[in-house]
């Protein structure tokens, strides 16, 4: 297949959109996957648990 301007423009306009949707779904699934909840909660609090301030207490 010859790659000309129109091919690329068509690709940009159609597959770009599909890629976008697929990508959004992947990120959303990851973020809301139930098993990940705990990890995110830990990460969220990780900078505040003072472990980095008082490592000797661990």
């Amino acid at each position: 297949m010859e790659v000309d301007h129109n091919t690329l423009v068509a690709f940009a306009k159609s597959w770009g959109l599909f890629y976008l949707i697929a990508f959004a779904i992947v990120v959303l699934v990851y973020v809301f996957w139930p098993k990940n909840r705990k990890k995110f909660d830990d990460a969220k609090k990780s900078i505040l648990d003072d472990k980095d301030d008082k490592p000797w207490q661990q």
Binding site: L8, F11, F23
Partner: peptide, 20 residues
């Protein structure tokens, strides 16, 4: 990968064309 898609899609075609 994620960040380069946009640039590629917009810049690459500009080089293939007579119409630009």
């Amino acid at each position: 990968v994620v960040s380069s898609i946009g640039g590629l899609v917009e810049i690459a075609p500009l080089y293939t064309i007579d119409e630009t």
